[in-house]
Amino acid sequence: MLAAAAVATHPDDPLAGLAVGEQPERPVPDGWMTVSVRAAALNHHDLFSLRGVGLPAERLPMILGCDAAGVTEDGREVIVHAVIGDPAVAGGDETLDPKRTLLSELHPGTLAERVAVPARNLVPKPASLTWEEAACLPTAWLTAYRMVINRAGLPADGGGTLLVQGAGGGLATAAILLAKAAGHTVFVTSRDEGKRKRALDLGADVALETGARLPRRVDAVIETVGAATWRHSVGSLRPGGRIVCSGATSGDGPPAELTRIFFLQLSVVGSTMGTREELVDLVAFLDRTGIRPVIDEIRPLAAARTSFERLARGDAYGKLVLTV
C-alpha cells in the first residue's frame, strides 16, 4: 500500500531517510481494527522519528504518522487516537503507562492508505468536522487541549491570562483558539511579524516579539520552545503561576531559573499528548464552539515529501494535511 515511511534515520538530514511509495502491511493483532485513512496530518514527531529519536534502526522501515481520520471496515467514520497504552496501569491515564508508545514508534503509523489500531483507540468523527479537520486533532490539538484546559490551572469559567510561546505551529495555533474559546486572555510571541499578525487574526489579544515584556504577568505559559524562551516564560508568570511544558524544539539546556521559581512559588508541569477521553472531550468542544484547526496546506499522500520539506523548513502556519 502507498505510505510515507522512514527507511533510514539521519540526525542531521532527516528527509534523506524518507520514502514515499509502496510498503507492506503487517498482520493485524487480535483486538485491533483496520481503518481506511481519508486524511492524515504531519507533526514534528515525524521529523524526530526520521532523525532516529525513539526509532532505532532495527524497527525500520517504519510507516510514519500519528494523526488520521478514516472509515472502519464496518463503515464507521472515526478519528484515530495515537497513544497505545493500558489506562488500567496508571489510574485511567494511558499516557502514564510506562510501556505506552505512539503510532509510528512500535507500530506502523497513519501516513498510509490503511492503519491498524486497538479498537479502543477509535473515536467517532462528528459530521460537523471534515476529514481534514478531524485528522488534525489526535496529536497537536489533543496536546494543546490537555495543556490549556486540563493542565494550566486556568479558571474553568474563563477570565484567565495565558502566554503562548512561538505562535505559528499546529500546537500553538490550537492553544490560541482553545484558550479564546474558553474565555481567556491570550498573549503570543513570535520572531516572525507575519505569524504575529496571523495570531491576532485568530483572536490573540496581544502579539509580541519573542522575549518582549508583556503588558502584565500571566497565570500560565504554554511552553514548547525550550532553551530560547524558557527565561522569558519564567519571568512572565505572576506569583503562583504555572508553566505547562510539552516540548523543547530549541533545546532543553536553559538556566533553570530556580531562584525565581521557588521565591515566586511557580509551578512547572510536564504534559504529553492526552487520553482517549480527552480526545472525545476535544471533539465535543470543537463541535460545540465551532472552532476549527488552522490548515496551512492539503496535499495527496503521494506528494508527502513536499509537505515534509515545508515541515522541516518551519514555514507553515497551522497543520499540513495529506489526503488518501
Rank of each mutant, 00 (worst) to 15 (best):
E223T: 08
G235Q: 15
A179R: 02
A182E: 07
A156K: 09
T189Y: 11
G158V: 04
L154D: 00
K195P: 06
A227S: 12
R231T: 15
G170I: 04
T185N: 04
A212C: 07
L208S: 08
A220M: 04
G160S: 10
R198A: 09
R217Q: 13
R216P: 05
A199N: 12
L200I: 02
G169I: 06
R231W: 06
E209T: 12
H184S: 07
V218S: 08
T210V: 05
G160K: 10
A181G: 05
L214F: 04
P215Y: 00
K197A: 15
L214T: 01
G160Y: 06
E209N: 13
V218Y: 00
G159P: 07
G241E: 06
T161R: 10
A172H: 00
G169H: 00
L163W: 08
L162K: 03
K195T: 15
V206I: 10
L163R: 04
G194N: 05
R213I: 15
G235P: 07
V234H: 08
D192R: 14
E209Q: 15
L208M: 12
A181C: 06
A152S: 13
L202Y: 10
A181H: 06
F187W: 10
T229G: 07
K195G: 13
S233F: 10
R216C: 08
S236W: 11
V186W: 05
F187H: 15
S190Y: 08
T229W: 11
D192N: 12
K180Q: 13
I222V: 15
A167R: 05
A172Y: 00
L163A: 09
Q165P: 07
E223H: 01
D157K: 01
L214W: 13
L171R: 03
G203S: 03
A207G: 10
T210P: 10
D192I: 05
L202F: 14
V218W: 01
D157H: 08
L171F: 08
K197I: 14
V221C: 12
A152C: 09
V218N: 09
T161W: 09
L171D: 00
T229N: 13
L178K: 07
T161E: 14
R191S: 15
L237V: 11
G160R: 09
V234I: 15
G169R: 01
E223G: 06
G226K: 09
L162A: 06
T173M: 02
G158N: 12
P155E: 11
H232G: 11
L208F: 09
K195I: 09
K197T: 12
V234G: 14
G158W: 07
L154V: 03
T189P: 01
V186E: 08
L208T: 02
T185Q: 14
A174W: 00
R191H: 05
T173V: 01
T161V: 14
A207S: 02
G160P: 03
P239M: 09
T229H: 06
K195N: 04
A227G: 05
D157C: 13
D219E: 10
R191I: 12
P215C: 05
Q165G: 02
D157W: 08
G160T: 04
P155C: 08
R238M: 02
T224E: 09
D201Y: 02
L177R: 04
R191Y: 00
W230A: 03
A156M: 12
T161A: 14
A167T: 04
A156D: 11
G240T: 10
